[in-house]
Write a protein that binds this DNA or RNA. Structure first.
Lengths: 144, 144
DNA sequence: TCTTATAACAGAATAATTCTTATTTAACAA
DNA sequence: TTGTTAAATAAGAATTATTCTGTTATAAGA
């Protein structure tokens, strides 16, 4: 995504366009593999050493509130972030910290139909996400 | 679960049976709703004020390693714990910190069959867990 | 350009968790 | 039952990730 697109995203949400916000968004996209706040901070500081750590956290918080990025649930104790917001699931590697997105419209439909039939008592579903845990059988290098 | 059962669980895993470990296991079971380490510590200290906080963390770590308890992923930044190990999914309330277990053997079979047909490239699945997000439509009091 | 609300900075503060070292104890053997 | 030893616990310091605070800077609209 280009700078221009980031600016447009911010404007759409009526957020002020600041260099810090652009840098954080670039970092999340540049890093892939659902980076932690720490990794994002590190990446940001390479090109913008003057951005304060607290600012990165604040910007991330703003982005999450505005649904520009999402927090990813992990078994470890640090949060990780991702940008795109389409419905998708996650593949978790049980032996490393690799996390990949998994999109599957057929699966979404299957689940939707299943839960339409099988009403849950006392619960109104708004979203379903799969955590698919296992092992990657390739070694595609992931930049961490 | 009775004390006796906790002791048996520990022995099965070749773990030393200590009052601290029994107290922590009792706490997780007593608290329900997937307590945080902090809640567990609080509960433990009511009856055993001399147990160190660090010990609770250490015991939890040991339990997780030995699969006696599991960590539950949350969107917030604290881990939560639960005891039982059968395959199950989670209902997350989007408006509170309530988390409930959801067991559904039909669903497990459906998913298993789906992924048997639809081979994932470069990934061997070992486990699938659903995060079902939504709203509870009842108000059953949850002890936090 | 001016104004103002919002954002960023710097660093202190906090919260959750981990680590360190000394002491204690559970489990097993004699 | 007692002794031995590896493992577990206690206590508190240390660390890590994150949030907060007060001040300064700046983006965006008038």
């Amino acid at each position: 995504m280009k700078n221009k697109d980031i600016i447009e995203k911010l404007l759409n949400k009526r957020l002020k366009v600041t260099p810090q916000r652009i840098a954080v968004m670039e970092a999340i996209e540049g890093l892939k593999n659902h980076p932690t706040a720490e990794k994002i901070t590190g990446f940001v500081k390479i090109h913008h050493p003057n951005i304060a750590t607290g600012t990165v956290y604040k910007v991330l918080e703003t982005f999450v509130e505005n649904k520009l990025v999402a927090k990813v649930k992990t078994e470890k104790d640090v949060m990780r972030y991702e940008t795109h917001s389409e419905v998708h699931h996650h593949l978790y590697c049980s032996e490393s910290d690799r996390i990949e997105d998994y999109e599957d419209e057929d699966l979404n439909i299957l689940l939707k139909e299943y839960f339409n039939k099988k009403k849950l008592r006392n619960f109104r579903i708004s979203d379903i996400r799969l955590q698919i845990i296992g092992k990657f059988t390739n070694n595609n290098s992931i930049k961490n």
